[in-house]
Amino acid sequence: MRQRRSLAGNILLAGVILILLFWVLFPFYWAFLNSIKKPADTFQSSWIPFLQFQPTLEHWRNELAIPEIRRALWNSTVISVGAASLASVLGTLAAYALARFHFHKPQNGTLTTWFLSQRVLPPVVVVIPFFLLMRQLHLLDSVVALILLNATFTLPFPVIILSQMIRDLPLELEEAAWVDGASRFQSFLQIVVPLILPGLVATWIIAMAFSWNEFLFALSLTTKKAIPMPVIIAGAEHTRGVQFWFVGVRVLMTMLPPLFLALLAQRWIIRGLTLGAVKG
């Protein structure tokens, strides 16, 4: 709505935005502040590094030197990259099928709903069978198990979003290739995939962030060598007490990768989180 704002309106608006920014950003700044304060400074209300206190990187260095933390960072990376890549491959193929082929039993709509329902299912319902299953397969405490599960739960993102994108591509592009003797697979790989690449990358990134943040399965299926970052930080205070600097570093180490990924996929996030229903 394009209306001229009055001065009072402008001030009100600025006030709301300032409060909003403070509310949203405070926890991040708090974590950052504590991660660079010397333990002695943490209990003083000082908010500006260099001016009010001398910042230090020693907590970052100390934490990054801990073998368990390094391993957890590595595990989280392997799990999220692996799961997102797997979901992207399966999802792109299925997206093409849903967009370009006519299915009868079950119909395209039923198949789509079926893929969507994946995000509705409460994970705690399947955590028991997964646990028993992975125990049977000797995959407890392995990154493989978490790659498989996270790929399953992030599969809806590429399926829904890419099938919409493919439907929007003119079929003539592919038809021209078929006339020249290309097969479905060739037209898919050489024409469709390059054209939907932005969406493919975006859903890959979103799936990666979701897999990185996943906690319930990680907690249930890992005990030692496959533990990712979210499990490392949960319950850590029970062994070391509340040490602000240490909380700050670990929280940021866990959060920064998905936050960075979210900013990269910014344009696609609304579409991703509403499973294609609303385009941002």
Binding site: I17, L20, L21, V24, L25, P27, F28, W30, A31, N34, F43, A209, W212, N213, F215, M229, P230, V231, I233, A234, A236, E237, V242, F244, V247, G248, R250, V251, T254, M255, P258, L259, L261, A262, L263, Q266, I269, L273
Partner: peptide, 28 residues
């Protein structure tokens, strides 16, 4: 503003809860 508003959505929930322990700390 929109970019900033996406940050909470992707902040690892466990990490937010863990950070909450310090933010809600009763003593200081």
């Amino acid at each position: 503003l929109r970019a900033i508003m996406t940050l909470p959505l992707f902040a690892t929930p466990v990490a937010v809860g863990y950070l909450g322990i310090t933010i809600y700390l009763e003593t200081n």
